[in-house]
């Protein structure tokens, strides 16, 4: 239980996927314009992350390891993630059309969210058990949510700020992102990853 809690806090704050590991920057910059879309996107990412962690762990353990095919991890994981995202999309379209509409193009884009593949490759590297890797995926998703919501707040403020012409748009966004990232260094050493 203690280890799981350490993984949870570690993946959320100390090695926050977006702000410390710099994974999943594309949706971080793309969807953080409004807090409402940021929340929807984070929800979808958490869901896909947990599901993909479970499935990829099983594939890695029972298909790849017995034949020592670890070099196929990347391609097998990508295949799994793409399928899962497609599956989530189909299910959402049927059961929750409102959420499906709100997420729009960002739902299929989770396929290429490197945070999802990144967390799959990290659990292999660290030899996590099934439960540990699922908790790790969940925590990574929560960390992504935290970063996205924090940053969407920053960006909503930036909208009304008087910014020099040459910094308008992406430049000031990148600078703000780096400042938020620097703030997360404060968590380093809280828990040993």
């Amino acid at each position: 239980m203690k280890e799981l809690f350490a993984i949870l806090i570690g993946a959320m704050f100390v090695e926050n996927f977006v702000l410390s590991k710099f994974l999943g920057i594309c949706p971080f910059l793309g969807v953080s314009k409004k807090t409402s879309t940021a929340v929807g996107m984070s929800g979808a990412v958490v869901f896909v992350l947990v599901l993909s962690q479970a499935v990829t762990w099983l594939i890695n353990e029972y298909l790849l390891k017995p034949y020592s095919l670890e070099y196929l991890q990347t391609i097998a994981f990508i295949l799994t993630i793409a399928t899962l995202v497609q599956f989530v999309e189909t299910v959402l379209k049927k059961l929750m059309p409102a959420l499906y509409k709100a997420l729009g193009v960002y739902l299929p884009l989770i396929t290429t969210n490197c945070a999802v593949l990144g967390s799959a490759l990290i659990f292999v590297e660290r030899d996590y058990t099934f439960v540990e890797s699922v908790v790790f995926g969940f925590a990574a998703g929560l960390g992504f949510t935290l970063a996205l919501i924090l940053f969407s707040g920053v960006r909503e403020r930036l909208e009304t700020a008087d910014i020099p012409e040459s910094f308008k748009g992406m430049p000031i966004t990148l600078i703000a992102a780096s400042l938020v990232s620097v703030a997360f260094i404060g968590f380093a050493g809280l828990v040993l990853p």
């Binding site: 298909l63 095919l69 295949l79 599956f87």
Partner: peptide
């Protein structure tokens, strides 16, 4: 043959699963 069949088997299984899902959850 083993890696090839594992990856193509995975692909086939996922593909079939998705086409089944799209029938079940058809809108």
């Amino acid at each position: 043959l083993i890696p090839v069949s594992i990856i193509s088997g995975l692909g086939l299984a996922f593909g079939l699963g998705l086409s089944y899902a799209s029938k079940v959850f058809e809108v």
